[in-house]
Amino acid sequence: MQMHFEYSVEGGNFSQAGLTSSQVKKTLKQLNVNGAVIKRTVVALYEAEVNIVAHAYGGTILVDIDEEKIVIELRDEGPGIEDIGKTMEIGYSTATPEVREMGFGAGMGLSNMNNNSDLLEITSEVGKGTCVKIINHFKDDNNGNK
């Protein structure tokens, strides 16, 4: 089995934020993936999707699923991240008041993404954009903890 999906995400459009995560959740459910793994995966993906909406201008989400794992790549066009280490700190956020009004902007997303993925890789170029890669294995042998 080898499945590939592509979705596009619009920056600033909060009413659409979460549509991709919702679709990926439905796909994983249909594939009968373990519920705890689904939750970890879609929480990490949703955080990353909301980050594109909140912090970038737009982007593409690529999803690849095989028997063993799901690989998600979120590529955005946006301001990029200068100091990735700093953004991983809980509480660091540059979110605008509009984003905060939506219930986000606490600077908790990236560390939560890290806690909910087997592998999290972030690369970024300032002034161009950011790429976030999430890999989760379907065999839930780590009880959701790294």
Binding site: F14, G18, S21, Y46, E47, V50, G103, F104, M108, G109
Partner: peptide
């Protein structure tokens, strides 16, 4: 604060909130 709700791992969980928007429902979904 949906960022905070998303860190909770408990099952059979109820969310009480004053944030009435689509993201509150999406957060519950995820």
């Amino acid at each position: 604060l949906m960022s905070d709700v998303l860190t909770v791992r408990s099952d059979k969980l109820l969310l009480l909130t004053g944030l009435v928007n689509i993201q509150a429902i999406r957060t519950a979904e995820m």
